[in-house]
Write a protein that binds this DNA or RNA. Structure first.
Length: 217
DNA sequence: AAGACCTCCAACCGCGGAACG
DNA sequence: ACGTTCCGCGGTTGGAGGTCT
């Protein structure tokens, strides 16, 4: 279609952000196709929604995950697997995208560490036919922490079962892992808490501040 | 100094399901 | 009941910036 050809894609500009903020404020964060049209933004409704949900929404926190949030993510992921939006709902101010990205980057690291360990002492996985690559995939992909699932433990194709979730990873092990991680971070002189990104805060704050809603009423 | 490699995250895509006419 | 539209989800990609060699 001709209309699709002129649709903008890629990174959002500040002007587009301001424009979207204005129209969301005006019409609410629903009916994204409509919003996209009336705003004059050459973006799809989908793109507008994504920008709002993942970035512009003032309820969002930005910056590094706190240890508490990390724990929650681990705990909830062990319960629900890759149900990112569901996990996000339990962690105020964080989006599914953010959590998903966090999980992929941090858990990949963990998986690699795990891999190193197991290659040093291969005895534990002697009966398994799973390759290292498969191990890594299982660890941070759909199965959550299946890698560490004890052989013979009941397996379920879908972990989605509200309160009666399957347990694949003991919380003790999770805490231990986190403590180790935090120790390492402290040794490397990296502050864990309170490192909110000033740059982002500045830009969005200024965006919200500079934008005087009253002028548009 | 510079090129290669890695990490992180914003944004996109495809799909399924809900809502609506 | 059916088709269409819209929304939300999970997976994936691309690029910017950082780190390593």
């Amino acid at each position: 279609m001709v209309q699709e050809e002129i649709m903008r894609r890629g990174p959002w500009t500040e002007e587009e952000d301001v424009q979207l903020l204005f129209y969301v404020k005006l019409f609410g964060d629903r009916r994204w196709d409509f919003l996209a049209k009336v705003s004059g933004l050459k973006r799809t409704g989908k793109s507008c929604r994504l920008r709002w949900v993942n970035y512009l929404n003032p309820d969002l926190k930005h910056g590094k995950m706190t240890p508490q949030e990390e724990r929650l993510v681990l705990e909830l992921h062990s319960k629900w697997g890759n149900r990112w939006s569901r996990i996000a709902r339990k962690i105020p101010g964080r989006t599914d995208n953010e959590i998903k990205n966090y999980w992929r980057t941090h858990m990949r690291k963990k998986a690699q560490e795990q891999r190193k360990k197991s290659s040093v002492s291969p005895s534990s996985s002697s009966s398994s036919s799973i390759t290292h690559e498969e191990n890594e995939r299982n660890f941070y992909d759909t199965g959550g922490l299946k890698l560490l699932q004890v052989e013979g433990e009941k397996k379920s194709s879908d972990q989605e079962q509200d309160g009666k979730s399957m347990k694949v990873y003991s919380m003790d092990e999770i805490w231990k892992d986190i403590e180790l991680l935090e120790e390492n971070e402290e040794k490397m002189n990296k502050p864990i808490m309170g490192s909110i990104l000033p740059l982002w805060d500045y830009s969005l704050d200024s965006l919200w501040k500079d934008f005087d809603w009253n002028n548009f009423r």
